[in-house]
């Protein structure tokens, strides 16, 4: 009995952690489902820019340095997915900041709930939404001439990459929400994401850029994140494309989760 008891306690703790995370996740997903007006812009705007680009830059695909693609949409898909996820992830972090502002976060902290499950649960909403966005963008753009060289397996990897990207960006934004406790501050980070996106290869290949700007795009992790998705679209289902898509988004997710958890620990310690 004395040997079994700690095992049972450990199992119960794990079950409890899973149940708490699951409950928090359901709440986060339902919040997105019930307020479509909040998330619709992160679906519409990336598609708008993809449509603009396809019409404006269709002749640019023959430029030196441009990857071999059938249409500009093939090139634009990766940028569209990451752009949508970047903007969508603000929604989850804003909701977390709102929880802090209205006191719900304090009630959670006072309850016997795992700290990590509070954060993971909130981010799960963004992760589900990231998967949905990836599928949505692919499904909408295929009738307009998008071709994905890696086929269905590639789309599956992109969805997984979308989930990890949503976790990475969501965790970073959540760290800001936890530190500031202000939904306005989180919303205010939008221009920062916009700049990160523009100073990357989201809209045009790095090979066509020059000077300082090209070097900034080289150093910007968003460029490398996007190019993983782009390799799957253009080059096909290769080991390097899969690794690039998952390892960069996964690596960023680990890093930003560590930052978010550290922020959470600091906030708990300060109480």
């Amino acid at each position: 009995m004395s040997v079994i008891a700690p095992v049972v306690a450990g199992t119960e703790r794990r079950q409890s952690f899973v149940a708490q995370t699951s409950a928090m996740s359901q709440r986060a997903v339902l919040a997105l489902w019930r307020q479509p007006a909040i998330v619709v812009p992160s679906l519409i705007f990336p598609l708008f820019f993809a449509a603009l680009g396809a019409s404006s830059f269709s002749r640019a695909i023959g430029l030196p340095g441009f990857p071999p693609v059938r249409s500009f949409l093939d090139f634009a898909l990766a940028g569209t997915i990451v752009q949508g996820i970047l903007f969508g992830s603000i929604t989850g972090a804003t909701a977390l900041a709102t929880d802090i502002e209205n006191g719900f976060f304090d009630r959670l902290m006072a309850s016997p709930t795992s700290r990590t499950s509070i954060l993971l649960g909130r981010l799960a909403g963004g992760m589900v939404y990231g998967a949905f966005q990836t599928v949505f963008f692919v499904a909408v753009l295929i009738p307009f001439g998008l071709t994905i060289a890696s086929g269905v397996p590639g789309i599956a990897v992109m969805v997984l990459g979308g989930v990890l990207t949503a976790l990475a960006v969501g965790a970073l934004m959540s760290a800001m929400a936890i530190r500031t406790g202000s939904s306005e501050a989180v919303q205010g980070s939008f221009p920062l994401l916009f700049i990160m996106l523009f100073f990357s290869s989201a809209f045009f290949p790095r090979e066509t850029m020059s000077g300082v700007y090209a070097r900034m795009a080289d150093l910007n992790p968003v460029s490398h994140l996007i190019e993983g998705f782009r390799d799957l679209t253009i080059d096909g289902f290769t080991a390097s494309a899969v690794a690039r898509t998952l390892l960069i988004s996964g690596g960023l997710a680990v890093l930003t989760m560590a930052i978010a958890l550290r922020s959470l620990r600091k906030r708990v310690a300060a109480r």
Binding site: F57, A60, P64, G65, M209
Partner: peptide
């Protein structure tokens, strides 16, 4: 400030990102 900074950022970002489009015939 956003009304002033936004066009400056846009100016830098667009001309840098789409640097090569001037090569289109």
């Amino acid at each position: 400030l956003p009304a002033l900074l936004m066009p400056i950022v846009q100016c830098i970002a667009f001309s840098g990102t789409f640097f090569a489009i001037t090569q289109i015939p």
